[in-house]
Design a protein around this nucleic acid. Structure first.
Length: 116
DNA sequence: GCGGTGACTGACA
DNA sequence: CTGTCAGCCACCG
C-alpha cells in the first residue's frame, strides 16, 4: 500500500493538528491522544520541529499547561503568539488563557476540540 | 548498545 | 506560584 495510505503515526498526528479549529488551541498530549498515540507528546513536538508545511496550524499547539512550548523570546515564540492573537486567542505571559474559566457562552471554548 | 537531548507530562515539595 | 524528579519516546554521536 502507499505509505500514506497506511496509518503512520506521523500522518495521524498531522491530521489531528489540522483538525484543530481556528481560534482554538490544543496540547501536545491531547493531539497525540487524538491521533491514537497516547504518551507520544514528544513525537508531536518532533514533528512540529521538523514540519515544513505552511498550512499546518502549528501555532495552535501548546503545552499541557497552556504555555508556549518554544523558548520565550525566540522568533518562533513571537510568531506563535502573533498568530494566536490574530485568531482571537488571548495570550499573556507567554501562555494561553486557560479554558478553566471560559467566557460565558463560549462553550468550553478552545482547549478541546474533542469535547465529545 | 549507551548516554545525552528535546516545541512533553504528571506528580510532588 | 516556582522548582525538581521520574517517565516517556525518537534521534544522534
Amino acid at each position: 500500500m502507499d505509505a500514506l495510505s497506511a496509518d503512520p503515526p506521523a500522518a495521524r498526528i498531522l491530521a489531528a493538528i489540522r483538525a484543530v479549529p481556528r481560534g482554538a488551541v490544543a496540547g501536545y498530549g491531547q493531539i497525540a491522544r487524538r491521533a491514537g498515540l497516547p504518551g507520544r507528546a514528544r513525537l508531536v513536538a518532533r514533528l512540529l520541529a521538523g514540519n515544513e508545511d505552511p498550512g499546518l496550524p502549528w501555532h495552535r499547539i501548546v503545552r499541557s499547561d497552556g504555555r508556549i512550548a518554544l523558548p520565550a523570546g525566540s522568533a518562533g515564540f513571537r510568531e506563535q503568539v502573533r498568530r494566536l492573537r490574530a485568531e482571537g486567542v488571548v495570550v499573556e505571559g507567554g501562555r494561553v488563557r486557560m479554558p478553566a474559566a471560559p467566557a460565558d457562552g463560549l462553550d468550553a471554548a478552545l482547549w478541546g476540540p474533542d469535547r465529545g
